[in-house]
């Protein structure tokens, strides 16, 4: 019995030793004791976000040999704080949070998903209940407006552009009440459920919810649509190891060519990841410029 135990130990030890001496040239990535913390913005129900992104990050972790830990944030703006305080290495940024993080922290965008319908962008919407009778900005006066977050393009930036375009200098006094739902989904449902009169959210979430809840198409009406901006893409801190950065980018951009990657993409609901650069956020920069918003000094904390 003791001999068998010793033999098993020898086999295990020799097996471990062999693993440690694996050549770096081998295609299978060596286990690097590196853990990346990737943040997720509360685009949807925060309790579903990890489940949604796990197939993608799981695949990338396997391909790159880097451990990836997901961290769900309850606010869009938290990403900016967490990069510093919680030590995030990267995040799936919304378009506005990316431009903020890029301006404040210098994060570098790597890739963003292209969905099965071929879109890789979204745009902001302003909508009301069909039975509310609101059709113009004038009719919005004294009503309740539901934003998403101060650090979202569709949920805050474009409504500000909209207000400015329509001569509303101070929305806080123009409306009876404004608040931040935290997610695009809640902004849509708050209007649908008459918690708010007017809402702002991204069209992709609106469409996805409309597909499963027919009340949205039937009872809501879109008053305004804005310019396309890039979908939530992965951006990493500027001082991240270049090789890791490249590996991450390569894994994401090529995953649609790999059956395992394809399966992960299918679970995520995307066709593939496409390369993304700062130039792709031109429309976001345009909106910030239009409303004279200084990204470097912008206070993204919700009121």
């Amino acid at each position: 019995m003791v001999k068998v135990f010793i033999l098993i130990c020898v086999i295990i030890i020799s097996g471990c030793s062999k693993q440690e001496t694996t050549s770096p040239d081998e295609t299978t990535p060596s286990t690097i004791d590196t853990t990346l913390v990737i943040g997720l913005i509360p685009e949807r129900n925060i309790f579903n976000q990890i489940e949604r992104y796990e197939p993608i990050t799981g695949y990338v972790a396997e391909k790159t040999g880097v451990n990836i830990k997901l961290k769900v944030l309850t606010r869009y703006g938290n990403i900016i704080d967490n990069f510093v305080s919680a030590g995030l290495d990267g995040a799936f940024f919304g378009s506005f949070t990316y431009t903020l993080a890029h301006a404040k922290l210098g994060v570098e965008v790597l890739a963003r998903p292209q969905y099965i319908d071929g879109t890789s962008t979204y745009h902001g919407l302003i909508f009301v209940r069909r039975d509310s009778g609101i059709k113009t900005v004038k009719e919005m006066k004294g009503k309740i407006f539901a934003f998403v977050d101060k650090a979202t393009t569709a949920g805050y930036l474009v409504p500000l552009f909209y207000f400015k375009e329509h001569g509303i200098d101070n929305y806080r006094t123009y409306f009876k009440e404004t608040y931040f739902t935290g997610t695009h989904q809640d902004a849509i449902y708050d209007v649908l459920n008459k918690k708010a009169d007017i809402g702002a959210a991204k069209n992709t979430v609106y469409r996805r919810l409309a597909d499963v809840d027919k009340r949205i198409t039937k009872e809501l009406v879109i008053l305004e649509e804005f310019l396309d901006v890039p979908e939530n893409g992965l951006a990493v801190r500027k001082d991240l190891d270049v090789s890791i950065k490249n590996n991450l980018k390569e894994a994401l951009l090529n995953m649609h060519n790999d059956p395992a990657g394809k399966s992960a993409l299918r679970d995520f609901g995307a066709e593939k990841f496409i390369e993304t650069t700062d130039n792709d956020y031109a429309n976001v920069y345009k909106y910030t410029k239009e409303i004279n918003l200084d990204l470097a000094t912008y206070d993204y904390i919700n009121e």
Partner: peptide
């Protein structure tokens, strides 16, 4: 319950809301 919780943890509004 999850939706309600998510909403509680993400919403930024006045005290009453």
């Amino acid at each position: 319950y999850k939706d309600a919780l998510s909403r509680v943890f993400t919403i930024r509004a006045n005290t009453g809301r």
